[in-house]
Amino acid sequence: MGKKKILIVDDEKTFCWMVKINLEKTGEYEVKTESKSRMALSAAREFKPDLIILDVVMPDMYGTEICKKISQEKDLKDIPIVFLTAIVTEAEAEFQEGIIEGRPTLAKPITTEKLITHIERMLE
């Protein structure tokens, strides 16, 4: 099995880049980043990721909207989506899974280790 493809959509370019290099450093993942929320859908269509990491609060389009759109697209709707956002606390994320659009939610800031654990659990 090849590298797992992961799409990160976040308006913080630096954050996208940091996550990308941290994940790719493991050699397990191929990561594509998109910092323009409006481009998220086309990026997904083009990249066909195994998993999408979505920020929630972004200019132009919220992550929740992107999530809805992906769910409605035949080719994309089965791709697991995880929200990674600063609007929830770690406790909220842990105790109340699926608080956003019924999807797993992770709170920023997060360690790479924790992120990978979640990614792996979702890709099983």
Binding site: E12, M18, K25, A86, K108, P109, I110, T112
Partner: peptide
């Protein structure tokens, strides 16, 4: 909170990277 957590997330990732 939102504005502080985002930079914190970047720092956290940066630390992770530097650790490696």
């Amino acid at each position: 909170a939102h504005e502080v957590k985002n930079p914190l997330a970047i720092i956290m990732q940066g630390i992770d990277y530097l650790a490696q």
